[in-house]
Amino acid sequence: MEGYIEAISLDDGAIRLTLSPDVAGTVRTSVGQFIEALETGRRPGVLRRRLSNWRLFAHAYPRPKPSRQFRQRHNGWMRESLHASACRIRDAWPDEPTFVLDRAAIADWFAVCGQAQTLYIHRRSPNPLQGSFGHGKAFWLAQVQQYVATAACGHDWQRLLEYDDQQDSQGD
């Protein structure tokens, strides 16, 4: 699939995100599948495997017991937060695949595009994309997340790149 993504920083901290129709369709499908998985606890696919907390969230402590206690205290509201973010993205989906995202919407998109990849790949695997059935979806989710993050950092990121270029040229 050949896709197109553009994310532009706007002056007020918002970004304008434009997706080609096929990328938009892929992301929209993934967001829907992510919402369903959070509601049913099952990932898409023939086997309908569980969407476990450890697949979404790393262990918080070096030792298992406090990590389990952390999960009991936090993973519930964390899943609910992701579900709410995904629902907001779905409900605000426009007719044309151009989105103006304010700061709250940027946070929703970043979190959901990152975490929805866990439906298709194991993020802590040494080679996350290998052998996974939905690696195309995961790829485009990662791309959109990357564009959103870069645009959200906006002019600061551009200044940093220019500074790095100056340092490199002075070192040559």
Partner: peptide, 28 residues
Amino acid sequence: LHDDDINTVEGVCYVLYEVFGIPVENGA
């Protein structure tokens, strides 16, 4: 924060700014 094969520098910078208010340069 631990290294992984998924998150990019830009992504980490964005999250550190959102969560801690760390400027992009320090996040990088």
